[in-house]
Design a protein around this nucleic acid. Structure first.
Length: 423
RNA sequence: GGAGAAAUGGCAGAGCGGUUGAAUGCACCGGUCUUGAAAACCGGCAUACCGAGAGGUAUCGGGGGUUCGAAUCCCUCUUUCUCCGCCA
């Protein structure tokens, strides 16, 4: 959610920035400004009536004490009048607040200046490509075939027990999952992130805090009976730890990590995009979440990008880094770097990580602030990034490290964690 | 799931219809004293919003109500604790 003071003071700049998303928000922002003006004047009006009413009440108390019942009763009548007025104004003010709130929920974050304009993924900017695509002396098989032959992942069993998009991992396939999770968590630990095991379901307030709600509830599984949501990423519970809080220390830097399964409804997906492990309703992910001082958030973003690069290099995977264009940028993000690994058999790039800086956009909704030297409270910056999402990593590992005899070689760095060097 | 009790500032804890945004203690910050520290004493110390400012308004778990006036009374929701039941 954009800060209203920012909209008031720098509207043109925001409109310009938002154009990179391919949408003109000037009318919406104007509407916000107009409603906000009205809101402030109504609020002032209401408060002056409240003020008068408060004073009157005090004097009534005084009059009764002094035994001046008649005067007191006259004041009571006046007080009742004020009350009627105050009630009407209260409703107007509340109505305006709701309207403003709804409008603000519809306005996405403003892309940073280096974010390219664009409307689709074709406009994303490749900022780095690492390694060369693997070559084979034989026809590499897609991971779903390998998984079937090696009995590491059972998609059909998942369909039977739950439905499409909920595979079983078995034997060495399951151990590989466990090893990867440990590997990622250990790397995060070494980089100074505190590990959390958060709840896998969250309440509505948390969904709003990180921007999944309102309007994007289609992405999440909703437990209607208890009004709770299955998390689509551990970003939600981790970031919401700091909802409604004020950090006292000026030099803070909060670094959290957590492994969780993630649940996504992903309505409307089809075809090769959802084949095998490419897109699941339930998948495992290790996430990094940071809360930073605005002056240090850029550096934090760089650190996170570097962290992900190292992971992919240790896994001996070819990857590229994309700076997402305005149109492809998430609603809450100011800048996002996507990491894609090359899948040798599918001959396509698969997204395995997304590292984003939200600036104050989430913090504003979360009411996540810090108190600086000057005693002023101001909004923190939040960041997060996957490090990493498992399924596509597994797909790439299987496809890119497959051997002619149908086996798969486990990268050196992972062997200690999975306990074997081949599948 | 059943029965009770409770929710007040960073913490502890008063207040139970009228100058109470809230006593008191601890913690914290500033000062006096001291060679320095401790102690003692003095002062300060919640959050949000509106306002150029003076100042105003709101907030005693959340929401609603009664009343001229609510931290105090009523309703409701949430949470916590105790007891009983069930259970990994």
């Amino acid at each position: 959610m954009l800060e209203i003071t920012r909209i008031r003071t720098a509207k043109d700049e925001l409109v310009e920035g938002l154009k990179k998303r391919g949408v003109d928000y000037s009318e919406k922002l104007d509407e916000v400004i107009q409603l906000d003006e009205k809101w402030r004047s109504k609020k002032a009006e209401r408060e002056s009536i409240q003020s008068e009413s408060n004073k009157l009440s005090k004097s009534i108390g005084q009059l009764f004490k002094e035994g001046k019942a008649e005067e007191a009763n006259a004041a009571k009548e006046r007080s009742a009048e004020l009350k009627t007025q105050e009630h009407a104004l209260k409703e107007e003010v509340n109505e305006l607040e709701t309207q403003i709130q709804h409008l603000l929920y519809e306005i996405p974050n403003v892309p940073q200046s280096i974010v390219p304009a664009g409307v689709s993924e074709d406009d994303n900017e490749v900022v780095e490509e690492h390694g060369s695509k693997p070559t084979f002396s034989f026809d590499p098989k897609p991971h779903w075939e390998l998984a079937n032959e090696l009995e590491t992942i059972d998609f059909e069993l998942g369909v039977k027990v739950t439905g499409a998009g909920f595979p079983f991992f078995t034997g060495k396939g399951a151990k590989l999952q466990r090893g990867l999770i440990n590997f990622f968590l250990d790397e995060a630990d070494k980089a100074g992130y505190t590990e959390y095991i958060p709840p896998l379901v969250v309440n509505e307030a948390s969904g709003i805090g990180t921007g999944q709600l309102p309007d994007k509830e289609g992405q999440m599984y909703h437990v209607v009976e208890d009004d709770l949501y299955l998390i689509p990423t551990s970003e939600v519970p981790l970031t919401n730890i700091y909802r409604d809080s004020i950090i006292k220390d000026e030099g803070f830097s909060i670094k959290m990590t957590g492994y969780t399964p993630c649940f996504r409804r992903e309505a409307g997906s089809y075809g090769k995009d959802v084949r095998g492990l490419n897109r699941l309703h339930q998948f495992d992910k290790v996430e990094l979440v940071r809360v930073e001082h605005p002056d240090r958030s850029e550096k934090a973003l760089e650190e996170m990008v570097d962290h992900v690069k190292v992971l992919l290099e240790k896994l001996e995977l070819q990857y590229r880094v994309l700076r997402l264009c305005g149109g492809d940028l998430g609603f809450t993000s100011a800048i996002t770097y996507d990491f894609e690994v090359y899948s040798a058999a599918q001959e396509r790039w698969l997204e395995v990580s997304s590292v984003s800086l939200f600036e104050t956009f989430q913090a504003n909704r979360l009411k996540l602030r810090f108190k600086g030297e000057d005693k002023k409270t101001q909004l923190c910056h939040t960041l997060n990034g996957s490090a990493l999402a498992l399924p596509r990593i597994v797909a790439a590992l299987m496809e890119n490290h497959q051997n002619e005899d149908g086996s798969i070689t486990i990268p050196e760095a992972l062997r200690g964690h999975v306990g074997f060097d081949k599948i």
